[in-house]
Amino acid sequence: INSAAATARCQDRVAMAELARGAGLPFARTRFVGTPAELAAAGEPAGPLVVKSRHSRRGDLVARADSAVRLRELAAEWPEEPVVVQDFLAGSGWDHKVWVVDGRLFAGLRRSELAPEGGGETLPLPPGELPADWRALALGVGEVFGLEVYGVDLLDAGGGAPLLVDVNAFPGIRGQAGAPEALAELALRTGARAGRRASENGPE
């Protein structure tokens, strides 16, 4: 459904941040720092950091580091992994997961995996309960990145303002009523359009 180019833009977190911030989206400040070993060599961090693999994929590194000791642990576990860092935002301790399928919103709440009690199941959140600017931001991501199916992670940046911290072109939309049907409908429409174009162009 998504183009290869659009998907690639979401797999490199440096490119992702540059595109989002260049378009005026409130994306978390993201800095490429080399490997965890290079980051650890810089000594004690000025404040809590979120350390992420530069290249987004299943099982990638996403961890909170509050001290040089933690950075050295990450360096031992991920010695050659290219990473980026974002400043840790405490927020409410909940991540807002928003998924979009062809302009249709689905949403959920999940305890931040960076919090001590983090992780667990995603609680359903009716999209209508999201503030209008949060919904507009989620839809705007699709326009900027050229995506039809995607997920975004949003945090409360203070005062109710949303902060975008990640974009996923391969979202796992679990437990969302209507999402499988919306995805199937989009796939069928996309396939039908491709078939019509092939028919109109005829054999070469």
Rank of each mutant, 00 (worst) to 15 (best):
I1T: 10
K97I: 11
T30V: 11
A23F: 09
A161Q: 14
G43I: 12
E80Y: 09
L186M: 07
L109A: 04
D87V: 00
R58N: 05
E81C: 13
A198E: 06
V101H: 07
Q86F: 06
V98E: 14
V167R: 08
A15Q: 14
L49M: 12
F27C: 04
K97A: 09
V50G: 02
L49W: 07
W78A: 12
E113F: 02
R196C: 06
A157L: 00
V14T: 11
G47A: 14
T122V: 15
G34R: 07
E44M: 14
F32T: 08
A15Y: 01
H96C: 13
V33M: 03
R13W: 01
A17C: 12
A184T: 10
T30Q: 04
G47C: 05
L19C: 06
E81K: 03
I173P: 00
H96V: 15
P203M: 08
R110W: 10
A132F: 06
D133M: 11
H96Y: 11
G120Q: 08
T30F: 05
A179R: 02
A194I: 05
V101E: 14
A15N: 05
G47Y: 03
A75Y: 06
V51R: 05
V100A: 10
T190C: 11
A138N: 09
W78N: 07
K97T: 11
N2W: 10
E73C: 09
A198G: 02
L125I: 08
G142Y: 07
V51Y: 02
V144M: 03
G103P: 08
V141D: 06
L74C: 12
G140W: 08
L123D: 09
G47M: 05
E204L: 12
V84L: 09
V83T: 05
V141K: 03
A15T: 15
A187W: 07
L39G: 08
D87F: 00
G160P: 00
A184M: 08
G103R: 12
W78R: 14
Q86L: 13
V83L: 08
M16D: 01
A37K: 01
V51P: 03
P26G: 01
S56G: 03
P116D: 06
V165R: 00
G22A: 15
K97Y: 11
P36T: 02
G108K: 00
L186S: 04
E113V: 07
R9Q: 07
A28L: 15
E181N: 01
R21I: 14
R21Q: 15
V98T: 10
Q176T: 04
L147N: 03
A115I: 01
A15M: 11
L74M: 09
L163T: 05
V141L: 03
R70E: 15
R58Q: 10
V33E: 10
D166A: 14
E113P: 03
R104G: 01
E121R: 14
A90H: 11
P180I: 13
